[in-house]
Design a protein around this nucleic acid. Structure first.
Lengths: 195, 195, 195, 195
DNA sequence: CATGAATGAGCCTTCATTCAT
DNA sequence: AATGAATGAAGGCTCATTCAT
């Protein structure tokens, strides 16, 4: 029998990230994804139930990785909360620096995810948030973070800021160095923008 | 002479904001927008060239208003740069507090805008950015803002943070008070999150 | 506005009967039905939810008519059960003589009908069967029909015989006169085939 | 030498009868047939040219058997035409009583047979018909069957009646005893339905 | 012979847009 | 200006068939 060569699922996901980033989920054609992955249209459906499932898998992998990293980070006792937040920021920049198209998909295609009960991306996302808030709470309880900061508000602000930065950077990578963005986030987080 | 009763264009735009917010641009049906606006499907095309033009007009109005406000803000000599930034933040919260659905559209449908040369939203957006950067530059030159802050990076971070906050708030308005968000943005901007 | 001309629903049904008869339900293309009806593909969906709904409507109309006729027949007091059965046989031959393609669809596409609870064809079919069995029961109780005949078995045999005759006749109308078929059914029903 | 274990062709045919009966020819998946037969999808194509060929083989076997039986029946001099017809009716009931699913396929999937010149089922079918008509003609010439009966018409009516009965019985075997059906056919054939 | 992964033609259906009234 | 019936292009998905192993 014909035997699976390489990792077609990964090929499809890589192709889909490119195509979704370029055209958006709704304008992306399965045919184009397949062509980009070097396979036939129908083969996509050997690995994914439908187009949405491809997108969901992208987010599942991404949130899975993010959760894994934050989870490990939270278990380190050699870092205080601030350092952990810095690490987290670096994590985002590192992941998306390697795959800028993933940043574009991450920011723009959230809306198109399915929200079925057993979607793993949801679970990973929740776990990530839990760990993120734990990190902040620890910072507050150990007295390094200003207790007037609302945990949820800060989470939204930081994540939103990172997302938007990365999206803009990914769309025009020459316009601004990613490291400038990275440093500025840390700077602002730490001290605000006042002199 | 015959006078337009009501303002159908405005009705369509209001309807479109609701429908786009609920379903997203691609899943929004012209028929649904028309129905929500209380007119017939075909009538939408008397006021807009196509579906994309409706979305573009929403953004044109929004960026037009934002530009108008920031422009006036910038001309005030009674406020320093920091105060202006606070005003700006309030501006965002005020606009979207009144029309939460607009926040959802604003954050999620950027991708679907056309980028034709003569799109007014682009012009207003550019002007807004210019004025925003002018505001920050002024803050730096007058010594109230940390000169190590990269103007572009800060712009991205702040705008991204606001967008994400507003989107999340709009989607579940009971979960978190908009004023908590508002205060936290200012707090973080001002001092960072450290104690 | 563009106004409905003629009766497109009827045009579609007529076209569908022809196309279903020729190609069978599964090989029939909506495009072909639309073309035969002289309209655009998409217009079919203004009148029918999907392909199956077209088939169901054909059967709904057919069983509706059959029920109406048998119902009226049953109310006549000037006919005995045997005469009513003859009338019924004639009814089948008359209906399908006018639209031979309908016979082909009637016989071959039962399988492809949906069986949703609110399918009207089911209701009409049930009512027809009720009236049919009532007719036979009356014949038995009035002593004109052999009480050893099982009502259900006879119903199956007669209906099956008629169906198969009509199908074969419709597929090659020159091979055998429909009236020979008609007379033979009555003859067999009445006396059997023995001398 | 290597000996075929089991008889895969027969396994496939049995599986196909089940699957065709349950889903109909067009909704039947080769994959499901293969699975039911306990082999791999591709293996079906080692034994049959395509899906249609599987169906054709089912009918070939069936008509082959029917022809064989009617042919033997016709050669018996100890039976008169009427008895032969009764035997034939029993034959149908016996065959399909053993494999009710075959009845469903027999009745519903005629349409989907190919009609290529060298299709054996066609040959067997023709031979069966020939012998069937011979049987009737004999009955007429020996004076036991009413000469006013049209041979073709009677063939259609009887076969159609049997088909429909068997189909309905097979689909709901508890609703009605097959023997009631069998006896009723003979009764009707013999005497008609009058008292 | 057997396998089952891979292929890709084919079609139903949707819905933005048009147009006759 | 307004209507809403009509259009038809477009694409997601299926599955019979092929083929490399």
């Amino acid at each position: 029998m014909r035997v699976k060569e390489g990792n077609k699922e990964a090929d499809i996901l890589d192709a889909a990230i490119k195509v979704f980033a370029k055209s958006g989920f709704h304008n992306a054609k399965i045919y184009t994804i397949a062509e980009t992955a070097g396979i036939a249209t129908g083969s996509v459906y050997l690995y994914f139930r439908n187009k949405e499932a491809v997108l969901n898998k992208i987010f599942e992998n991404l949130w899975g990785q993010l959760y894994k990293e934050i989870s490990e980070l939270n278990q380190r006792s050699d870092l205080n909360a601030i350092d952990k937040i810095y690490y987290l920021i670096d994590l985002f920049f590192d992941i998306f620096f390697e795959k800028p198209e993933l940043a574009i998909v991450f920011v723009n295609e959230q809306t198109n995810l399915s929200h079925a009960k057993d979607d793993l991306w949801i679970r990973y996302n929740e776990l990530f948030i839990e760990d993120g808030e734990k990190m902040l709470a620890e910072g507050i309880s150990t007295g390094v973070i200003n207790p007037n900061i609302n945990v949820r508000a800060f989470r939204y602000f930081l994540l939103g800021g990172l997302r938007y930065m990365l999206d803009n950077w990914a769309k025009d990578q020459k316009a601004l160095s990613i490291n400038v963005l990275r440093q500025n986030v840390k700077l602002i987080i730490k001290k605000g923008i006042l002199v």
